[in-house]
Amino acid sequence: MNRRNFLLGASALAVLAACGDSSKFIAYNGPPVTQIQIFKSKRMMYLLSGDEVLKSYDIALGGDPVGPKQFEGDGKTPEGLYYINRRNPNSAYYLSIGISYPTPQQVAYADSLGKKAGGDIFIHGRDGKNKGKGRDWTAGCIAVKDKEIREIYAMVRDGTPIFIFP
């Protein structure tokens, strides 16, 4: 009886292993990511350790990618220096890591014009019903493929600076 249960369990594990790794979470043991650089005009994101590029990714941006984000609903991706400040393992977009937009100065500017600065800007995937269509489709976020956000989620730590260039 015990041998039969062992063989059934081993067979089940072999079948699962043959299906591939479906886990969203992977391990990363390489050099630390010390900064992220995003070049909106090139639609490229780079993960760096010091001055060495560890990884590069093609990205999608907000639906109106030219110019900095200033107000809620403007469809723009922010520009400037921010920090990774949160994670969402249950994102509607597979996985996501938060960007510290808006700064207090950006909030004050929007307030001075009677508007809201917006928020909830993330680097995220394209999961399920939310798969992006076209070149730039987000509401201001930075989108990559699901397999890429798995790598990014594993490699990048909270507090990492992110420079977003025009």
Rank of each mutant, 00 (worst) to 15 (best):
P102Y: 03
V156H: 02
G128C: 04
L81S: 13
P32N: 12
F122M: 12
N5H: 12
D127L: 10
N130C: 01
D158S: 08
F122T: 05
E148V: 05
Y57V: 02
K76F: 01
L54W: 07
K24H: 06
E52K: 12
G159D: 00
R126F: 01
L95K: 05
L7Q: 13
L13M: 15
G50P: 00
R157A: 15
R43P: 02
L61C: 10
A18P: 02
A60Y: 01
P32D: 13
G20C: 11
I149P: 04
Y57T: 03
R135P: 11
I36H: 05
K24Y: 04
I97G: 03
G75Y: 08
G134F: 02
G73K: 06
L113C: 06
I36M: 07
A10N: 01
N130I: 02
S112C: 06
K40A: 10
C141F: 05
K24P: 07
I36C: 03
K129M: 09
P166K: 14
K116W: 01
G140D: 09
P65W: 05
K116E: 14
P89E: 13
P78K: 00
E72R: 14
Y101G: 11
A110N: 00
G30K: 04
S22G: 14
N130L: 14
P102G: 09
D21E: 12
R150Q: 15
R135F: 00
K24L: 05
S22H: 13
G73L: 07
D74L: 14
A92S: 13
H124C: 04
A143H: 09
L16C: 13
D51L: 08
I59C: 07
F39K: 13
G134C: 04
A17K: 03
P65T: 09
I164V: 07
S56G: 07
P102E: 08
R135A: 12
P89F: 04
C19G: 10
N90P: 00
G159R: 10
N85E: 13
A17D: 02
Y94R: 06
G132R: 07
L16T: 08
F122Q: 11
G114I: 09
N5K: 15
G30T: 05
R126S: 14
I142V: 15
N85Q: 08
L13G: 14
K116P: 01
A108N: 02
A27Y: 11
I36N: 02
D120G: 11
I59K: 05
D127C: 04
I26L: 10
V107D: 01
P32E: 15
R126M: 14
D74I: 10
F165N: 15
V15C: 11
R157Y: 03
A17I: 09
Q70V: 07
K24F: 01
I123V: 13
K55E: 15
V156E: 03
L95S: 04
A60G: 14
Y101L: 10
